[in-house]
């Protein structure tokens, strides 16, 4: 049992990490990853919603009638999204400004609803927690990685913090004469760089 919980957790970190393995939830992936900070912030926000909704859905799975389950899940998810929105405004306002409309959009992130429906509504609380946490953290590192790559190429530096807890500031990694490749932090660059990262991930086997 312990092993299977661990595996539910770890599968999200590597084997089924969205959006690299499960190509889902792309809107925030492309939209907010102009910097590593934003990527991680968005990832953590999603993780919170994913975790809470997975737990709650799993708890209520016997009560909710099948026909309206999607609607119920949406209410649950939307509630937690608003919680995140409010909390973020209260405690990490600048990050909230950067993430903008993408915070409310967590509600339509396929991963969140997908895990609720495919996993939490059919499994117990412990497993669902592990699943939610695993997938969420996988999503977070993926977003962070994409953000970091884009920030690095696009600006030449890495700078930011997570909720004021951890700070990093690495200026001019490629030397002072580096001319930042502005394409990377622009909209089309997001697609292209994610595409190339996916290619790199495909080269690494999932096992």
């Amino acid at each position: 049992m312990a092993k299977s919980i661990a595996s539910e957790f770890t599968k999200g970190l590597w084997k089924e990490v969205p959006p690299f393995r499960l190509v889902l939830g792309l809107c925030p992936v492309l939209g907010v990853t102009t910097s590593m900070k934003n990527g991680i912030g968005m990832g953590l926000a999603t993780t919170f919603v994913l975790l809470c909704s997975n737990i709650l859905v799993s708890l209520l799975r016997k009560v909710i009638p099948a026909k309206v389950r999607i609607a119920c899940f949406i209410i649950i998810i939307a509630t937690f999204v608003i919680v995140v929105e409010q909390m973020m405004q209260a405690f990490a306002y600048t990050l909230f400004l950067d993430l903008g409309v993408f915070i409310p959009l967590i509600v339509v992130n396929c991963i969140v609803l997908g895990r609720a429906e495919a996993f939490a509504s059919k499994n117990g609380v412990v497993k669902s927690t592990a699943d939610g946490l695993g997938i969420g953290l996988g999503f977070t590192w993926a977003l962070g990685l994409l953000g970091a790559v884009r920030e690095l190429i696009g600006t030449g530096s890495l700078k930011g913090d997570v909720f004021g807890l951890i700070h990093w500031d690495v200026p001019n990694i490629f030397g002072a004469s580096f001319e930042p490749f502005g394409f990377a932090v622009q909209a089309p660059g997001a697609f292209v760089i994610l595409g190339l990262l996916l290619c790199a991930m495909n080269l690494i086997p999932s096992k």
Partner: peptide
Amino acid sequence: AILMVSYK
């Protein structure tokens, strides 16, 4: 085009 938007 990519160069134009990156290195104006």
